[in-house]
């Protein structure tokens, strides 16, 4: 009885969405609203105005810096919410959250049983992956990539190392005492860089335009990229560790 109704509703929804899609301007149509307002300015003067060869970074860190600040705050809030849920579940003994088996004697044991091949390959590739992550973060304003992407690579590397080498190793790599500070690294860096911009230009997150200040502008962008990268890596890694924790 219920199923035909659900299917009919879904078909109606699909029809409505398709009708809305048909109203959109064609891809690449020159006089579509997207192409007639700000994007022409971004494409023509983005590099000169922001000093970022990669226009995506120019928009993310400069033209729409406030939006990225908000996004970073959203990620921070999501991390806090995730911790809150996990802590509450662990404390109340929620029946949907199966308690992990009692911890065995803690030696340098990996989190799961890992084959020697996987262990060897992860350890062999780790420095190269770390180097690639640093490259992606630092070159984000010149080529595709940036803080978010590099941070995710770094976080994935951290998770792989934790799986293979165990939690003792991850605690050495990322000391527990540092973690609370690193959670808030990206929003804090945005605040600091924004304040520096306020001092230099009179606008929060403003970047100096004069040719003599290009070094400062680049340093501000790279600082933000590094903070987003490290903050993102720590966010992903600590969500993983919080889920894994016993």
């Amino acid at each position: 009885m219920k199923k035909p109704l659900v299917i009919a509703l879904l078909i109606l929804l699909a029809l409505a969405l398709l009708a809305a899609m048909a109203e959109l301007p064609a891809v690449g149509q020159a006089d579509a609203p997207v192409h007639t307002h700000v994007s022409a300015r971004y494409i023509e003067q983005g590099e000169a105005e922001t000093g970022a060869h990669n226009l995506v970074t120019a928009v993310l860190l400069n033209y729409r810096g406030m939006d990225t600040f908000g996004e970073v705050l959203v990620l921070f809030t999501a991390l806090c919410a995730g911790f809150a849920v996990l802590l509450a579940a662990a404390r109340n003994g929620n029946k949907h959250y199966r308690q992990p088996p009692a911890p065995q004697e803690s030696g340098a044991v990996p989190v799961i049983a890992v084959s020697p091949v996987v262990s060897f390959v992860v350890r062999l590739l780790a420095p190269f992956i770390a180097l690639f992550a640093a490259y992606v973060i630092l070159k984000g304003h010149l080529s595709p990539g940036g803080g978010f992407q590099g941070g995710m690579i770094l976080g994935a590397l951290f998770i792989a190392l934790t799986l293979v080498l165990g939690k003792q190793y991850s605690a050495r790599l990322l000391p527990v005492a540092w973690r609370p500070w690193l959670y808030a690294l990206a929003p804090a860096a945005f605040l600091v860089v924004g304040m520096i911009g306020l001092q230099l230009t009179g606008y929060f997150l403003g970047y100096p335009q004069e040719p003599a200040w290009h070094g400062v502008r680049e340093a501000m962008m790279v600082t933000l990229e590094i903070a987003i990268g490290v903050g993102g890596a720590v966010l992903v890694a600590s969500l993983f560790l919080a889920l894994e924790s016993d």
């Binding site: 990669n54 199966r98 990539g145 978010f148 992407q149 995710m152 994935a156 889920l243």
Partner: peptide, 28 residues
Amino acid sequence: APDVAMAEAAVGAGVTTVLFLVAIGVTG
């Protein structure tokens, strides 16, 4: 869109999968 592609490869194919697997590990 190489920027989005990089984020998708790292987040969509990598990190989300690991988080899903860990979540499955602690639930069912």
